[in-house]
Design a protein around this nucleic acid. Structure first.
Lengths: 179, 179
DNA sequence: GTCTATAATTGGATAGAC
DNA sequence: GTCTATCCAATTATAGAC
């Protein structure tokens, strides 16, 4: 992996766990095994790190959209199934960018809006009923919220319900939506 | 309002919009119209502000639990109905504490877990089916996630669906849950 | 109870050596 | 392409006057 990629991954990991302001250039550099000067050769500023991460999210979301469109069990089930935390590249990048968005980063907010609009579009196509589609999108948002609250750590609390238990509920929403 | 309350409210507002690290003591003091020294008389440290806010959340959640238990339309509908952003004291405090939790504040994480466990308990009592109850809880989480992403600003995007459109979907989940 | 002054530290960014 | 040294601004917290 190139030094640039290592730096971006280290930045993402820290952002995920601690947030934008708490993620210092020194910590990112240390995480990637280079010095602060080395970091600043690849990324001119802290803002440049954020912009690169937002680009990475756009790419991953684009790939996810293709997979969602052609999913065997349909876009809605695919969406909910993949919204539970699995530590995938998209999971990690999405929650990291969500941290940026919450700390008032405009680019990150716009990227989150783009991603969610795209998902909603495919769900509406399948469901044919906007409020139901919105409810399904919200369930996915809720799963990301849970992950974001703990910085992506495993959460096997009493309240935890896995995808296997959730899917029948989604199936029910799909079957019963007005047309 | 006492100076202490003003300070806590100013802290909460900044936390909501910018996150823990970005919320400086100077900005909190300025928001409440006192000096940094004045702030530190009421709160010995930044951590003391965080702890006071967590206490405030526990109180508001306790009150909300009572209202939820005795809601005319039942706990589940009450929960979803009140999870849409209305800028209420509970909304603001909850999302502010969620910011703290995301920046790895243990007390905030524990408070969020307590709140969500309490809500889930009442929903399960009503619904009688854990996966359905969990789905309803997730819809509320999703609504808070949306609010958190924008720091509680109004979001009247194309994807926005209000409570009036969402409630029938909840009603459907309630009616169709296995018993 | 609130203020000013200031100490001690940290963080983002630049300059220039290697 | 990476490092060290350094500057400047910002931040938490203390001390003590009023």
């Amino acid at each position: 992996m190139s030094a640039r990629d290592s730096l971006l991954s280290a930045y993402q990991a820290l952002l995920l766990a601690e947030g934008h302001r708490a993620t210092t250039l020194e910590a990112v550099a240390a995480g990637a095994g280079v010095s602060k000067g080395g970091l600043l050769y690849h990324f001119r500023s802290k803002e440049a790190l954020a912009e690169a991460l937002v680009e990475r999210l756009d790419e991953l979301v684009g790939e996810d959209r293709e997979a969602m469109r052609s999913a065997e069990d349909g876009p809605s089930r695919y969406y909910v199934r993949t919204s539970v935390w699995t530590d995938s590249p998209l999971d990690r990048t999405l929650v990291a960018v969500a941290q940026l968005a919450q700390e008032s980063h405009d680019g990150a907010r716009a990227a989150m809006a783009r991603a969610r609009d795209g998902w909603l579009e495919l769900i509406v196509e399948e469901v044919g009923h906007l409020p139901t589609a919105r409810a399904i999108l919200l369930i996915g948002d809720g799963l990301y919220f849970d992950a974001a609250l703990t910085g992506g750590a495993d959460h096997v609390g009493a309240a935890h319900v896995g995808p296997d238990e959730l899917m029948p509920v989604i199936g029910h929403l799909l079957d019963s939506a007005p047309r």
